[in-house]
Simulated scan of single mutants.
Amino acid sequence: MKKLILVATLASVAGAAAAGAMAQQPAQKGSEDPDRMICRRITQTGSRLQGERVCMTAAQWAEQRRIQRSDIEHAQTTIIDHSGG
């Protein structure tokens, strides 16, 4: 059950981050500098008021997306034993 909650939280954070990234980044995909700083506002799930501003380089954001995608794919392919023992 804890894994399911973790996966749901990661998915919602990743979705919110992706939505925020689409709204804040220009359409220039080919000329992206990996050392360019990008700041995004990450909101807490279930709250419209609380959130924090996170600044990382474009390369760090890309690595963060890769890790989140890997974690979600792993959680989706993991078989959970509900037999209780």
Rank of each mutant, 00 (worst) to 15 (best):
A59E: 14
G20D: 00
H74W: 14
R41S: 06
A18L: 09
L49M: 08
Q60K: 13
R65V: 05
S12D: 07
V54M: 14
A23L: 12
A8G: 14
K3V: 00
M22W: 05
T77A: 13
Q60H: 05
T45W: 02
Q60P: 06
R53D: 08
T78N: 07
K29C: 01
G51F: 06
H74E: 11
L6E: 00
S12H: 08
H74V: 10
G15D: 11
D71V: 00
M1G: 03
M1Y: 03
V54K: 13
D35V: 15
R65S: 10
L10P: 02
A75L: 11
G84A: 07
M1D: 04
Q24W: 06
G85W: 00
V7N: 13
A62I: 03
H82D: 09
C39M: 06
Q28L: 02
C55E: 15
A75E: 14
L49C: 02
R65P: 02
A62S: 15
Q50R: 12
I38L: 12
A18G: 06
Q64K: 15
R36L: 04
A11S: 07
L49H: 09
E73I: 09
E52P: 01
D35W: 15
A17K: 13
R53H: 03
Q25V: 04
G20H: 00
D33W: 01
A16E: 06
S47T: 10
A16P: 03
A11D: 03
D81A: 04
P26Q: 04
I67W: 15
T77R: 15
R65M: 05
L49D: 06
L6M: 00
I42T: 04
R48V: 03
Q68N: 12
A62T: 14
W61G: 13
A62Q: 15
H82A: 08
G84Q: 06
Q24N: 09
E52F: 02
A16V: 01
Q60I: 02
L4A: 10
Q25R: 14
S47D: 12
S83T: 15
E52L: 06
S31C: 08
Q60R: 13
E52N: 07
A58I: 01
R65A: 12
H82E: 10
S47R: 11
Q50W: 10
Q64I: 07
A16R: 09
V13G: 12
A75T: 08
I79D: 05
Q44K: 10
A58C: 02
I79L: 10
Q24F: 09
A16H: 09
A18E: 11
A62P: 11
K29P: 02
G15A: 09
S83L: 05
L6N: 01
W61C: 11
P26T: 05
K3T: 00
T45P: 05
A11K: 05
R65K: 10
R36A: 06
G85R: 10
A17D: 10
S83C: 05
I79Y: 06
G15I: 02
E52H: 01
H74R: 15
I80E: 12
L6C: 00
S47E: 08
T45M: 01
D33L: 02
R53C: 08
S70I: 08
A59K: 15
A8M: 14
E63R: 08
A19M: 06
K2G: 01
A27Q: 12
Q24V: 03
A27H: 11
T77W: 13
